[in-house]
């Protein structure tokens, strides 16, 4: 059964059309890479799907497990199972990672339910070990003074703890050196499985050497202009985006 289903989406930013007639289905259990040059609308798509109010969806439909997310608030979309790993995660001074994730998990409970603290920390440490994150890390304020790599690892840790059904990863590779990239990718790979669908937004093929996608889509001027298997990414790397642009122009 398909998990994220986008049909003919049109998204404006400041009245200007950025995403034009975008359709894509990401089934659970698959990793789809969305590639494209700067300004093609990839990040706009991600933020709009997460419900950011500056991104105006003016046409089309978006379903998460059959639920229409265009009618939902950001937090409702999150609780319905959509996670976004931010390209530039916000700092939240004074709020520790442990408390932040705990608050996010608590928000998913019914009013009379409580999170079992011992169980929570056991799970948190387990995921941190998996992601090779030092346990002292959780006492630090969310993203405050973090290096690029730490920020991305913190995103992946949250993703592992919140167990979304669909994760949109927005340029997770940007600002990472090769070691950080490897660690983050390994983390994502451990989460791959039949219950998680991933939309991996990236500019470069480099990330896809570590997280091998099931499908690759190329976005250009607000639309998907080409889709294919993992080899499409290699082809792009070799020929550059101009090759796609020329092809599109020829059609």
């Amino acid at each position: 059964m398909s998990s994220l289903d986008l049909r003919n989406l049109k998204i404006n930013v400041g009245g200007k059309p950025i995403v034009k007639d975008f359709s894509l289905t990401v089934p659970k259990g698959e990793v789809h890479a969305l590639m494209g040059p700067n300004g093609s609308g990839k990040s706009t798509l991600a933020k709009a799907l997460a419900g950011h109010e500056d991104y105006e969806i003016v046409g089309g439909e978006a379903f998460l497990n059959g639920q229409n997310i265009l009618e939902m608030e950001t937090d409702e979309i999150s609780r319905a199972g959509l996670f976004m790993a931010f390209q530039y995660p916000s700092e939240i001074p004074g709020v520790s990672i442990a408390n932040f994730i705990r608050a996010a998990l608590t928000a998913r409970l019914a009013e009379n339910e409580e999170l079992d603290a011992a169980q929570y920390y056991r799970r948190l440490y387990e995921k941190m070990d998996l992601l090779k994150i030092d346990r002292k890390f959780t006492a630090r304020s969310v993203n405050e003074g973090f290096s690029g790599g730490e920020k991305k690892r913190c995103e992946i840790l949250q993703m592992a703890m919140l167990q979304p059904q669909i994760a949109i990863m927005d340029e997770t590779d940007s600002g990472l050196d090769i070691d950080a990239l490897r660690i983050v990718s390994e983390g994502v790979n451990t989460m791959r499985g039949p219950n998680l669908g991933i939309l991996l937004i990236t500019h470069y093929q480099r990330l896809l050497e570590y997280i091998v996608p099931d499908r690759v889509h190329v976005m250009w001027d607000g639309r998907i202009v080409r889709s294919g298997g993992k080899n499409l990414a290699l082809e792009l790397e070799e020929k550059g985006y101009d090759w796609v642009k020329e092809e599109v122009a020829a059609v």
Partner: peptide
């Protein structure tokens, strides 16, 4: 942007505000 980030993790707007305020006075 901070509120959006927290809401994307499932916190309501009020919970997000509250967390930001708690963080501010935490130390």
């Amino acid at each position: 942007e901070q509120i959006f980030y927290m809401q994307q993790r499932g916190l309501s707007e009020a919970q997000a505000m509250s967390l930001a305020v708690n963080g501010f006075v935490n130390d």
